[in-house]
């Protein structure tokens, strides 16, 4: 008898819970759209390279505006344009520039282009194990190692260390190649700049994140990979890249900022901002923080190369 009552009580409670659940559905959205000024939800979908940077900026933002809630998704730059297009988010960080195709799709959907903001400078570095004695590598060799197409003009594929290094130093055997997965902007950029838009070899290991690439290269003597400058750790060594002119350029803050290092790039944040309208408070506070001195200090702490404040301020259109 007693347990019977218990069972019934439970049922009423679950029923009540369900009822309340469904009633609260429409209300949640209402609560979200009307709030005090610097509050609300700040969502972003996009680059994995910039995930750490976005998180740190977000942390700094929430210490100042505790009412802002953050929702960051970082699965790769390629996820930003569809998300902006579908309206899943208004902020799309990308580690490469939008392609014309992506931009046109956006314009077609909304009638205006997305706002493009350059927020930092980064570089791609070719990495090997920390004890690898290889002094430098030429752009042509990188293509011959990573691609199956050799669109940059290599004569023959390089698959083994014996082919790359004539003398008897360093690792032997196959060059274990490590790369990002296809959604990543780093992947796209590397393909465009280093493989001359060619195809990767099919046996390149594809990792879920940049730090996984660095970890994998740091664990294996015969490995080679590429990653963002900010992910460098002492477990791996960045190779200087030699161009046609023959001089090898080491990636460093100076060479990346002045563009001497061939694989340097801007990092972007794309914003869905209808012309003439103002951004919601949370987005606005976020962007103001990004282009401030504090934001650029955080950029350095995250391992990227900051931009001069004047360059940043010139882009302010909101």
């Amino acid at each position: 008898m007693n347990s019977n009552g218990f069972a019934l009580r439970i049922k009423y409670r679950t029923a009540l819970g369900l009822l309340w659940l469904f009633c609260s559905l429409p209300l949640t959205g209402w609560a979200q759209t009307s709030g005090p000024s610097a509050s609300g939800t700040l969502g972003s979908v996009g680059s994995d390279t910039m995930a750490g940077l976005m998180l740190r900026w977000g942390e700094a933002l929430t210490t100042r505006h505790p009412d802002i809630s953050l929702q960051f998704q970082a699965s790769g730059s390629a996820s930003a344009p569809p998300a902006l297009l579908a309206g899943t988010t208004r902020i799309g960080p990308m580690s490469r520039r939008m392609t014309d195709e992506e931009r046109n799709a956006f314009v077609e959907r909304y009638g205006y282009p997305p706002l493009e903001l350059r927020v930092a400078r980064d570089a791609l570095v070719v990495i090997v194990h920390r004890h690898n004695p290889l002094p430098a590598i030429s752009l042509k060799d990188v293509d011959a190692i990573f691609s199956s197409t050799r669109a940059c003009g290599g004569d023959h594929p390089i698959a083994r260390w014996e082919t790359l290094v004539e003398d008897d130093t360093g690792p032997r055997g196959r060059i274990a190649l490590h790369s990002r997965n296809m959604a990543s902007g780093t992947y796209g950029l590397f393909r465009q700049r280093m493989l001359c838009d060619g195809e990767f070899r099919p046996d390149v290991s594809k990792h879920m994140g940049a730090s996984a690439v660095v970890a994998a290269v740091g664990e294996s003597y015969a490995a080679m990979g590429y990653s963002g400058y900010n992910h460098l750790t002492p477990s791996v060594r960045a190779l200087p890249l030699s161009t046609q002119q023959g001089n090898a350029v080491m990636p460093s803050e100076t060479t990346i900022q002045n563009g001497d290092y061939p694989l340097s790039r801007y990092l972007y944040v794309y914003i869905n901002l209808p012309p003439g309208e103002t951004l919601p408070a949370a987005e606005q506070a976020f962007l103001n923080m990004v282009i401030s001195a504090e934001g650029q200090q955080i950029t350095r702490a995250a391992g990227f190369v900051p931009l001069p404040l004047s360059t940043l301020e010139a882009q302010r259109t909101w």
């Binding site: 997965n181 959604a183 046996d203 290991s205 990792h207 879920m208």
Partner: peptide, 23 residues
């Protein structure tokens, strides 16, 4: 290693359908 290879070697990687969906 998430490499979409048609290789039978036990020392090479592979990519499965489930993993491809998730990524």
């Amino acid at each position: 290693s998430n490499t979409a290879l048609l290789s039978a070697s036990p020392f090479e990687g592979m990519r499965t359908m489930a993993a491809a969906i998730a990524i």
